[in-house]
Structure formats: structure tokens, C-alpha cells
Design a protein around this nucleic acid. Structure first.
Length: 403
DNA sequence: GGATCCCGCCACCCG
DNA sequence: CGGGTGGCGGGATCC
């Protein structure tokens, strides 16, 4: 009982009031702020904590306590990080840190897988279920119309012996969802920007059931948050409508944060390490009287600005792929003619003249569902438009690397 | 009013 | 069985 008292966790952390600069910071301490507890922020801190030299093991307990959050949240982060190779499960509660350098390889694999199963598998043939190499997870969770036996309301009988239940678990994991989400971008040139709603529809065999959709979208938000903090994607909005959506940025080299106390300091300000523990006691409750405090906390993403030395400037400029110690990594072998994104490496435009028109027929995944076909067509059109514009404006892009 | 998405209950899995 | 995992979705927040 008494042990429930959050008081015991009180840390002598320098008053969170350091939240800073902005306006009336003198506002009341508490004030539950959802933003300060976002998965994205947590992930940023997680990375700041482990993405450094010397790190090779990551313990969940350790992470949870250091970051001042419940374990549950760590699982979320770890699962998506693992899906892109940054981490690998070693044993229970134990992960091996692979680092950002493992991302290229992981993406490459996803891309290949994607071309193979996620897309082709659909219409080429029911896939050869026979040789199940195991190798690695996957098993795209595609067609499965999710339990057709109107599972909606299982009601009753917990039929523990539900066979489909077994891998159904894995099938719905955050990790797999993350991989499939990423595949949407790297396996299809047509999708450069996508709203989570559309992503959910595409990833789900079909959109129907509103409830399923909502849940899927929630998960995608979770994923998007951590991928954003890794700078693999970025939030924007669709070109046409004003709908919010995400853009694939891809991996642009190790952030190499040589960060030391500097960044950490900054981090602690964004999401005071120990402070949140204190927050635990302030969990959201509508009952917070006089909730007039505008928790003006600077989001100050470590965008552009950035310290002189710690060049973590996530400049996604154009210099990409090309030489890369071991095997250049390039996105897009799936791309029609080349394998380069006009955006990223507008270096080779010679092959850019490929037959855009022919594209959809060759690279469009064929979903049985009409809705999805339309959806994809929509993306395809948008892409064509965008592509031709880019091509026009940069008939012959000079070399990106001016070094 | 939607877009977001935190929180934590509780089903699962595995030793 | 017990404890580590981690789906899932209610409902609070943000904008």
C-alpha cells in the first residue's frame, strides 16, 4: 500500500522548471502533458542513451528505469527498432545493440522480401507454401481477411485451441507491422507520402471494419513516432488534400552523434529523465482543476540547428548512397528504370526516361479488392505527376556531391 | 471535431 | 504456475 506512493520516487532532479525559455514557464509544475510522454520523445531519449560507442547490450529493465517509464513502453520501442535491425533480441530482457549501421541491410532485405511476397505473391500464384525456410520472420500478413469466422465477437468460449491464434499473434505484432509499413515505401516508387489511414487500408487486406481500422491506425501512429525520431520518416501532409501523412526519408548515414553531455542535456530538458517519474503521479485525469497552464514546452527538435561539433544535423541532403564502405546501399532496385529516387540521388538521369506509363502494370501490387486498387492507382497518378515535375525541373541535375 | 496516441488491463507465451 | 511480453482499444489531449 504505502509502496504505491509515488513520493518515494521523487528525485532531486533539477527542477523541471528548466523547461525553459518559452513564455510563462513559471507555470505550475505538474500539468499533464501528453507530448512529454510521447513514444517519439521516449525513443529519442532511448537512442541518445544507447546509440553510442561501447554499447552492445541493452537491458529492458535498465532502459525502463533510466528513462523513467514503465516497461510496457520500452517494448514498443524495442519492437520497432528490432524490425529495422537496430536491435536484436538476445534473451529475455536482453537485447544486443546493433546500431544504425544495421539499418541499410535490414531495409535491403525488407525490400527484397517485399518485392517477393508482399507484392508478387499476391497475384502470381498463391506462393509456394512448401519450403518454409525460416530464416526470419516475415510471412506477410496480407490477405488474411483476419478470421473470417466472424471473429468480431468471439463471445464466450475462449477456445484456447484456436490454431489460427498461434501465429496470429506474430502476425499482428508491432514489429511486423513496422516492416510492412516500411515496405510500402521502399517497395513501391509510387508511394512517397502516405497517410496512415491509407497505409492501414493497404496493409490490412481490406478496410472494412472500422474498429479494426482504428486499431491499426493507432499502431501506425506508434510506429510513425519512433520511425520519426529515427528520422526515417517525416510528417507532412498529402499533396492534394491537406491530410496529414508521412514521407519516407530513408537512412542517410549514421547520425554519429558524438554527442556527449551536450545533447544529453538537451534531451533531459525535452523530457526530463527523472522528471517523468514524477509525472507518473500526474497521470492524466480530467479532474485537474484550473488546467489553464499552457504547457509551453519547446519541442525544439534537434533539427537543423545543432551543435557545432555534434553534427547530428539530419541533413537529408542529396548525397546519399554511392560509396558506402561495404556495398553501396541504394534504395530502389524496385524502381522501374534505375534504383534511385529522383529526390535523393538525382545523379543519373539518363535512365530516367523509362516508360512511366507502363509502370503501373508492372509494379502495381494487385489487390483483389477494388478499393485498394483505386487507392493504389491514386498514388500512382500522384507519383507520375510528381515525377514528371521533378524531371522537368531538373533535367540534368548536377552532381549532388559537391565536395 | 478530427487527428493523435497514452495508458495499462489482461491475454499469451515460455520456462 | 509465475513472470516476461505485448495486443488492444478506451478515452484524454492536442490542434
Amino acid at each position: 500500500m504505502s509502496d504505491l506512493s509515488p513520493e518515494r520516487f521523487k528525485l532531486a532532479v533539477t527542477s523541471p522548471s528548466s523547461i525553459p525559455e518559452s513564455s510563462s514557464a513559471l507555470q505550475l509544475h505538474h500539468s499533464y502533458s501528453r507530448k512529454q510522454k510521447s513514444l517519439g520523445l521516449l525513443c529519442t531519449n532511448f537512442l541518445a542513451l544507447y546509440n553510442r560507442e561501447g554499447i552492445e547490450m541493452v537491458g529492458l529493465d535498465d532502459a525502463a528505469s533510466k528513462l523513467g517509464v514503465e516497461r510496457r513502453r520500452i517494448y514498443d520501442i524495442v519492437n520497432v527498432l528490432e524490425s529495422v535491425g537496430v536491435l536484436t533480441r538476445r534473451a529475455k530482457n536482453q537485447y544486443t545493440w546493433k546500431g544504425f549501421s544495421a539499418i541499410p541491410g535490414a531495409l535491403k532485405e525488407l525490400q527484397e522480401e517485399g518485392v517477393k511476397d508482399t507484392f508478387h505473391r499476391f497475384y502470381v500464384n498463391e506462393n509456394v507454401k512448401g519450403s518454409d525456410d525460416e530464416d526470419d520472420d516475415e510471412e506477410s500478413s496480407q490477405p488474411h481477411s483476419s478470421s473470417q469466422t466472424d471473429s468480431s465477437k468471439p463471445g464466450s468460449l475462449p477456445q484456447s485451441s484456436d490454431p489460427s491464434k498461434i501465429d496470429n499473434r506474430r502476425e499482428k505484432s508491432l514489429g511486423l507491422l513496422t516492416q510492412n509499413f516500411i515496405k510500402l515505401f521502399i517497395c513501391s516508387e509510387a508511394i512517397r507520402i502516405i497517410s496512415l489511414d491509407d497505409a492501414a487500408k493497404l496493409l490490412l487486406g481490406d478496410a472494412h471494419n472500422t474498429s479494426i481500422m482504428r486499431t491499426k491506425v493507432r499502431r501506425l501512429y506508434d510506429i510513425a513516432n519512433v520511425l520519426s525520431s529515427m528520422n526515417l520518416i517525416e510528417k507532412t501532409h498529402t499533396l492534394d488534400s491537406r491530410k496529414p501523412a508521412f514521407k519516407w526519408l530513408g537512412y542517410n548515414g549514421e547520425p554519429t552523434f558524438t554527442l556527449s553531455s551536450d545533447l544529453l542535456q538537451l534531451e533531459s530538458r525535452k523530457r526530463a529523465f527523472g522528471t517523468d517519474i514524477t509525472n507518473v503521479n500526474v497521470k492524466r485525469s480530467k479532474s485537474s482543476s484550473s488546467s489553464q497552464e499552457n504547457a509551453t514546452e519547446r519541442r525544439l527538435k534537434m533539427k537543423k540547428h545543432s551543435t557545432p561539433e555534434s553534427s547530428y544535423n539530419k541533413s537529408f541532403d542529396v548525397h546519399e548512397s554511392r560509396h558506402g564502405s561495404r556495398g553501396g546501399y541504394h534504395f530502389g532496385p524496385f524502381a522501374p528504370g534505375t534504383g534511385t529516387y529522383p529526390t535523393a540521388g538525382l545523379e543519373d538521369n539518363s535512365r530516367r526516361a523509362f516508360d512511366v506509363e507502363n509502370l503501373d502494370s508492372d509494379y502495381r501490387p494487385s489487390y483483389q479488392n477494388q478499393v485498394l486498387k483505386d487507392l493504389f492507382s491514386h498514388y500512382m497518378d500522384a507519383w507520375k505527376t510528381w515525377f514528371s515535375e521533378v524531371t522537368q525541373e531538373n533535367p540534368l541535375p548536377n552532381t549532388s556531391q559537391h565536395r
